[in-house]
């Protein structure tokens, strides 16, 4: 049986986050990934249309134009969409890890526990990380983990598509 025990998620509790290859990682909530990708696709269409009608390429919009505010960390996005945040992903081959004192037990299939669904999902984690940083920093980690589901694979594909756009 493989499982780990999480006492508390704190900024100073990050054991294992630098493991190579990764055993677990934070990754943006799938809806944030979806909206970012949808924006990028729309932006590509917009820029191509501008060129087609004979105008110069508008280039990359500012951060404010992309996110709709001067700077919106993820918690601000959470205010309007309470179901967003970061999910905790765990490799299916993870070794047991214990944080003491013991409070809650999560197994790899609970992290994030979306597909396949787990009745004991690891809770969402709100962070101050920007979307670009999260993608650049955590996509390689998620990609390097043994895939646990099609959900996992789709996240990787969509994340890479965002970066390529």
């Amino acid at each position: 049986m493989r499982f780990f025990v999480c006492f508390q998620v704190r900024c100073d509790v990050h054991g294992g986050m630098n493991d190579i290859p990764p055993c677990w990682t934070l990754f943006l909530h799938e809806d944030i990934i979806a909206r970012t990708l949808a924006y990028k696709l729309d932006l590509k269409t917009y820029r191509l249309n501008e060129i087609e009608v004979g105008r110069e390429d508008t280039g990359r919009p500012t951060y404010k134009e992309v996110f709709g505010a001067s700077w919106i960390p993820l918690p601000s996005l959470l205010l309007s969409s309470p179901n967003q945040g970061c999910r905790w992903h765990c490799a299916p081959n993870m070794d047991p890890i214990f944080f003491i004192p013991m409070v809650t037990v999560y197994r790899p299939e609970d992290c994030p526990g979306v597909e396949p669904y787990s009745a004991h999902q690891f809770p969402l984690i709100n962070t101050l990380l920007s979307i670009p940083f999260s993608l650049l920093h955590t996509l390689p980690r998620l990609t390097s983990m043994a895939p646990s589901s099609k959900y996992h694979g789709d996240l990787v594909v969509m994340g890479r598509e965002i970066l390529s756009l």
Partner: peptide, 8 residues
């Protein structure tokens, strides 16, 4: 411009 991410 496309709808910003925070409004999507």
């Amino acid at each position: 411009l496309p709808t910003p991410i925070s409004s999507r």
